[in-house]
């Protein structure tokens, strides 16, 4: 039962994380470009983006932690998954992608977004560099989410041999 609850929270947090990732990439970034052009960007950068980023990075952390618990206590074990051993390789590939994505959120996206949004001091040149780094890290995560989700759903014991065997 504990594992089911863990997996339930993993999926809830994952939906929140990836949902906000898609919101940033498909809605906010293109919308912000238009909002800057007509002088209405402040509403987004001041009232929406900081709150969305808070939910985004916390959901990322919860998704990874509950995923790690499920990997360790589930059928494969974290060691077999992260060393891509045998039948654990598909979920291990998904776990590696999720781990890279978590790194991107906390190390590349959040610190650089703080500069872009003016939450920390930065020169205009620093802000431009930070915006590009955060953008590419966010786009990398959007790209990785596609195979990550495939391996997340196909890497469970019920499907592994049918899909990869």
């Amino acid at each position: 039962m504990e594992l089911v609850i863990d997996r339930w929270i993993h999926v809830l947090a994952g939906v929140t994380w990836i949902g906000l990732l898609y919101y940033f990439n498909f809605i906010q970034v293109p919308g912000l470009g238009k909002a800057k052009a007509d002088g209405t960007a402040a509403g987004i950068t001041k009232h929406i983006a900081p709150n969305a980023l808070l939910w985004f990075r916390m959901a990322a952390a919860v998704t990874w932690l509950t995923g790690a618990v499920y990997l360790e206590r589930g059928s494969f074990g974290m060691h077999a998954a992260f060393t891509l051993s045998g039948a654990a390789a598909p979920i291990g590939i998904g776990a590696w992608m999720g781990t890279i994505m978590l790194f991107n959120v906390w190390v590349l996206i959040w610190p650089n977004q703080k500069k872009v949004l003016g939450l920390v001091e930065a020169s205009d040149e620093d802000k431009a560099k930070a915006a590009r780094t955060a953008f590419l890290a966010s786009r990398t995560n959007t790209m990785l989410s596609i195979p990550m989700l495939f391996f997340m759903i196909s890497g469970t014991p019920a499907h592994t041999m049918g899909v990869f065997g």
Partner: peptide
């Protein structure tokens, strides 16, 4: 040009990665 600069390029790159890693996973599962 960086494919990640467009949404379409990002999605296509993700699908290509999925196919590549599918065959990697198949080889690892044996």
């Amino acid at each position: 040009m960086n494919p990640l600069d467009s949404i379409a390029g990002t999605i296509i790159a993700g699908v290509v990665l999925t196919v590549v890693f599918y065959y990697v996973a198949r080889a690892l599962v044996g």
